[in-house]
Amino acid sequence: MNPKAEFDIIVYGASGFTGRLVAEYLAKAYGVGGAVKWAMAGRSAEKLAAVRDEIGAPKETPLVVADADDPASLKAMAERTKAVLTTVGPYQLYGEGLVAACVAAGTDYLDLCGEPAWMRQMIDAYGAKAKETGARIVFSCGFDSIPFELGVFFLQETAKARLGAPVPRAKGRVRKMQGGFSGGTAASLKATMAAAAKDPGVVALLMNPFALTPGFEGPAQPPGMTPELDADLGVWTAPFVMAPINTRNVHRANALLGHAWGKDFVYDEMMLTGPGEQGEAMAKAVAQMGSSMLGGENAPKPGEGPSKEEREAGFYDVLFVGIAPDGRQVKVSVSGDKDPGYGSTSKMIAEAAVCLVKDAAEVPGGIWTPGAAMGNKLIARLTGKAGLKFEVEAG
């Protein structure tokens, strides 16, 4: 973290759809120039000023001009703040220059990345330098993967309290979800597929559940690619389109925590579709939809998104089941009060940035997951401010 910085947080990409939501949230939750000193950044001062006025932020909200194609502007931005919160993706196209600038300046970095192959490349290229400079680089601070990574963290804390030890087997099961994935998520998937077509090494990383834990390979993990009956819950499950990034982040969190959940830890994610023949039919239908769940040709483009009414009507509810070696179980849930891809995501990354700067000064430099870096401190902010609930369930 940059101790001499002018700002606590700069929101880079504030004139884009998600960045605008982040800025709007910070303006309402923290004002300007108060306990959290933040600024809006993007390529055009005129666009930033227009967005500032549209979201009702104060006229004195600082504006910073920076462009992913201009390394000097990224360097200047990174040197002015304790943390850069960036919504400018796909990160494999626009992110590395900012990561490099933040690492060099010792400035914290947070993003919404769901691109595991690029994240591994950044870990390999900048992980050691970030430790040297004190920069905390935190990927995946939105719906991918905070509710899932922190859900497993909360599950394991609950298991330690109730069962006396963490569990070696955990399941993430999406029970309910309304609201789509973001245009940025869809664009990231498209960019990842293009990169995979050019580089077989990208394909290998995408297939490896331990792609984000260099130097460590754990046990075989459930593939999660086909519909199946969950014997522990008695209901059918279908593949969950975000499992390929969430599961990697969960395994990285375990590694960053010194394998606190065990080197034999097994975790998978699926969607619950219900019991009996109807549940089976629904599971098969969801599996056939595949990545079209991201919206296909109808997905919002980066910079576009749902109306305020649609965001307000959205929600999600994820069940986590932990199974001890003796068969005992513990269950917790994580839920959010807005649509996953925009309304909830914008609040999550904003509070993650505030938490990192204000509550987690002791966290050393390096490339982190949100849960491994901030754990219970982030859960407290998300439940207190961002509309998430972390609850222990009976049974």
Rank of each mutant, 00 (worst) to 15 (best):
A361G: 12
K160R: 15
D124N: 11
L233V: 13
G295P: 03
W261E: 10
F154D: 01
M242A: 06
E280N: 09
Y30F: 14
A255K: 02
P168T: 06
R169H: 14
G234C: 03
V88K: 02
G375I: 11
Y109S: 05
M270D: 12
P306A: 01
D317G: 05
E269S: 15
Q92E: 13
E96Q: 14
T237G: 14
A45P: 07
D264Q: 02
V138N: 06
K190S: 12
R136P: 05
A68M: 07
Q156H: 08
V65I: 10
A195M: 06
V64I: 14
D339R: 05
L229S: 11
I123V: 15
A130Y: 11
T192R: 12
A68F: 01
L150W: 01
K338L: 13
G95L: 00
M225W: 10
H259D: 14
G13F: 08
G336Y: 12
G184T: 13
G34W: 00
T185S: 10
P90L: 15
T81R: 05
L356F: 08
G179A: 13
A372C: 01
S145L: 06
D70Y: 00
V174M: 15
Y12H: 06
K47S: 13
G16H: 03
S140V: 04
R311C: 04
A66T: 04
G366I: 13
Q156A: 07
A186F: 02
N254D: 01
D317E: 14
K59V: 13
L112I: 09
P223E: 01
E149T: 07
G56R: 11
L21Q: 08
K131H: 09
G201M: 09
V99A: 07
K284M: 07
F143N: 07
G274L: 00
K198F: 07
V36E: 09
I10A: 00
Y126V: 15
A186M: 02
A211V: 07
G201P: 02
H251I: 07
V22S: 00
R120N: 09
A299C: 02
G184S: 03
P370N: 06
Q121T: 10
G314R: 01
R252L: 03
A255R: 01
A50F: 07
A68G: 01
M242E: 08
S188K: 12
M225P: 02
V84Y: 00
A14K: 06
A14T: 08
Q156L: 04
N246K: 12
M119D: 14
T237W: 03
K385T: 05
P58L: 05
S182K: 12
A194G: 10
T61A: 13
L163R: 10
Q278H: 11
V32L: 08
Q92D: 10
G31W: 01
V203R: 14
M77W: 00
R248V: 03
L98V: 03
V250M: 10
R80A: 04
K377N: 12
T369A: 00
T185Y: 05
F210Y: 14
L382Y: 03
T61W: 06
S188P: 09
A76H: 03
P364K: 11
L98I: 04
A41D: 06
M177F: 12
K171S: 10
L98E: 06
F7H: 12
